[in-house]
């Protein structure tokens, strides 16, 4: 038993690419909402717009901050957020590392990159004590922007979403309506909601309802 336990290294951890070589149709977590007519074809003229960013690569990293920081910096060029509730985004804005708990971080990269990144991180971390889990299929990212985006959030989350409570570069796990989300502030212009797949439809319905008075549009690219 102890022998097997000590030999979880690069060579014998079962990893697999969730993107098959032959491209096949994938459904975003908002597919159900789309079928029900809750997703708009094009952005409306309202004051709030919610755009899903489907099929991104989400990785959960667990382990010691120091070892993970070195590996993530080397492979992604982003520092691991040192402080609780930190969110570090790269210059392009397409890759990010979010603090989830004292030994847990969420890495989001463009779809298709996550498998290679996972392998590179495993390679680099070697025998260190860590875990990497690909959770891309379990959650999705919804970008909320517009003049009244904050007003919609004020109705939906218990957290203080004013810029003094949630400045750029901060991300919190909190209550959204009756579900849990990760609420992120990558830039001044928008909020990001990391939503669980099974609650994506619920969140969209809630957003549509909460944003109705301002005019809200929900978009979800199909590829």
């Amino acid at each position: 038993m102890s022998e097997a336990g000590s030999e979880t290294n690069v060579s014998n951890v079962a990893v697999f690419d969730t993107h098959p070589a032959e491209p096949i149709d994938a459904e975003s977590p908002l597919a159900w909402s789309r079928q029900r007519g809750l997703v708009d074809a094009a952005g409306g003229s309202g004051q709030v717009s919610a755009i899903e960013r489907p099929f991104l690569g989400h990785l959960i990293l667990r382990g010691g901050a120091i070892t993970l920081d070195e590996a993530v910096r080397a492979e992604l060029g982003i520092n691991l957020p040192g402080q609780p509730l930190g969110l570090n985004v790269d210059a392009e804005g397409s890759r990010s590392v979010q603090w989830l708990s004292p030994d847990e971080w969420l890495v989001i990269v463009p779809g298709g990159e996550e498998f290679a990144l996972e392998n590179r991180l495993r390679e680099r971390l070697g025998d260190a004590h860590f875990a990497i889990v690909n959770v891309s299929g379990g959650q999705t990212l919804v970008e909320l922007s517009g003049d009244k985006a904050r007003d919609v959030l004020m109705k939906s989350v218990t957290y203080d979403v004013h810029s003094h409570g949630l400045p750029v570069g901060k991300a919190v796990g909190t209550v959204f309506a009756k579900t849990s989300i990760n609420l992120r502030r990558p830039s001044e212009a928008c909020f990001e909601l990391v939503v669980r797949r099974s609650f994506a439809d619920y969140c969209v319905r809630w957003l549509r309802d909460a944003g109705r008075e301002y005019g809200v549009s929900v978009e979800s690219p199909t590829s």
Partner: peptide, 11 residues
Amino acid sequence: PYCGERREEEE
């Protein structure tokens, strides 16, 4: 004590 700030009881 881990997040380092006050949060609503609901959480």
